[in-house]
Design a protein around this nucleic acid. Sequence first.
DNA 1: GCGCTTTACGCTGCGCGTAAGTATC
DNA 2: GATACTTACGCGCAGCGTAAAGCGC
Lengths: 305, 305
Amino acid sequence: MALPDLSSRQLRAFLALAELRNFTRAAQACHLSQPAFSALIRTLEASLDVRLFDRSTRSVQLTPEGRRFEPAARQLMQDLRLALGDLADHAQRRRGRVHVAALPSLAAGWLPQLFADFRARWPGVELALSDLLSDPCLDLVRNGQADFALAAGGARPADAGELRARLLVTDRFHLVCRADHPLAQAPRLTLRKLAPWPFIHMRRHSSVRQTLEAALHPLAMNTVLEVEQLATVTGMVEAGLGISVVPALTLYQFQRRTLVTRPLPLPAGSSRRIYLVQRREGSLSAAAQALHDLVIERFAGRPGA
Amino acid sequence: MALPDLSSRQLRAFLALAELRNFTRAAQACHLSQPAFSALIRTLEASLDVRLFDRSTRSVQLTPEGRRFEPAARQLMQDLRLALGDLADHAQRRRGRVHVAALPSLAAGWLPQLFADFRARWPGVELALSDLLSDPCLDLVRNGQADFALAAGGARPADAGELRARLLVTDRFHLVCRADHPLAQAPRLTLRKLAPWPFIHMRRHSSVRQTLEAALHPLAMNTVLEVEQLATVTGMVEAGLGISVVPALTLYQFQRRTLVTRPLPLPAGSSRRIYLVQRREGSLSAAAQALHDLVIERFAGRPGA
DNA sequence: GCGCTTTACGCTGCGCGTAAGTATC
DNA sequence: GATACTTACGCGCAGCGTAAAGCGC
């Protein structure tokens, strides 16, 4: 009795009858037979314990109580319409927002085309991208700010508790050097051959350095420079200051006439692994799931990278 | 599909599960068996075509879409609660407003006690009173500003179209004179005995004058004064300027030691009739109906006045 | 194995449409 | 007598509870 059950159909029927003031026509408007409609109004009045209409065979009109209820009912229906419309918009990906956290190399090289395709398919969905190193990426996923991340597996292999990772691609290492560099033409490229040459490291890809140093041991590398930005590496190599080794996913930066990139033979497992990481519990929003699926679909074609 | 049916029970179930994140306990909160509750959630999700909860045997939590819907659902339920509460308050007469239009004589003499009793019974209901002559009273009822009127039948006997009148009381005429006036003691009071005496008329009660003049014809009345306010009549009679004749319902003004009031024998039908007048179509609000019933009940005891 | 959700299943009754009834003009 | 709401009635199915069956720890 405190809060009687009430359906949106009853509210619609009430509003239809309040406007049309005619059971027969209101019943038609609600796609109901007239007696069924009459019963619907009757049960509404019974459950509210209020007579809402004065009806005689000649006229139907709101009681004072019905008049009082009408604007509230209209507002409720409007609010319901808006809420359901908003919900459907998000479920159908007509609106929404997806936040991806991704390594800068992916953010600059591989994601732009993916985002462009996604926007073309779902123009109403906002996209947000945090181009950060792996750990901050995973933090964003963990605290719910990002829907998922594309990051290196790195330190925490599975992040057992909160996160769930899916291997997307193994990111093999490539040599980068000038086209006129002796290594550009070397017939059988081996790691040992790299050791003597002036080398430019990128601080971010410290895994590259560790891998190389481990493989070359006991030889030491001839490091000439350590920089932050990938574009700096490009410029330095192009200027002839040295050679470098970078993950395959960054090669988009080195597609120039003056440069040559060559895949390096590396011990199995030494290459960088890129994962798609999301929270273990809780599903993705419809829009995020669509982007997620697109990522998987695109990477499915290139399992080795 | 455009606007799926949705019941308040489903919203309540949704909110309960969103808060408790446990089907079993949420089902208890909704007084349902757990499978029935589960089905309720399932049909809700089906009719919205959106998965609202991620459920495993270990945990239940909102999907992103469910999280988006939750505040809207909560708001809808709150608005519904308020609307139904307001409606019930009015239906139960805990709140409301009644506007009565009544002749000044009734407004001053008879209604105060009625209003006091009504307020004691329904303290939350506002009362409004327009103390006007009959025609303005009826206008207020006709245009919907007043709920009903207590007025003289007067010019329009039934107001055939819009209004409906119910005879409350026939307001017989009474002589008003000083206690030391000869008529105060006259053994058999007749109209003709009034003719010689100086007479004070009230413009408002012109029906009194017409009735008296018709009954006395061809004798002429000895009019000394014509005034607007009833209180003026009291003062004038008390001062010995003359006698007067007033409707019974105004006698409250003349209950003084110095004055005497005596019923007059009048031709049948010549006395003023007081009606309760309301719109023909459209019922009264719960509060107005209660006051209406109280009026009828009080007058039922005094059919003649 | 235990806790929790889902599936299975029979049953009640709500809510529908058709058809007859009734009141008002 | 025409029009419009209500009542009567049979039927189908939605929705309930009980009981059994998955499913993750």
